[in-house]
Amino acid sequence: MKSNSLAVGLGVLGVIFLIIAGLYAIGVLQIATSTTSGPHIKHAVLFVVLAVASLVAANFARPRTA
């Protein structure tokens, strides 16, 4: 399934995941964590992985011009 809108959507999702990763890494975001303060590197790494996956999926979804 290839379309420009899907590719853009996945790309935006990737950027959002990167921002969330950054917020977890500096300790601003505390949602679904075991402690209520400090950085959450595990969560940050997870969102970096999700960002990478989204950006890769965006590249796959991009229509090719032959």
């Binding site: 595990k42 969560h43 997870l46 992985v49 999700l50 996956a53 890769v56």
Partner: peptide, 12 residues
């Protein structure tokens, strides 16, 4: 990659 993501989400 696809197989690792669900495990990583649930793990974290």
């Amino acid at each position: 990659l696809v197989g690792t993501i669900p495990a990583a989400i649930l793990g974290v």
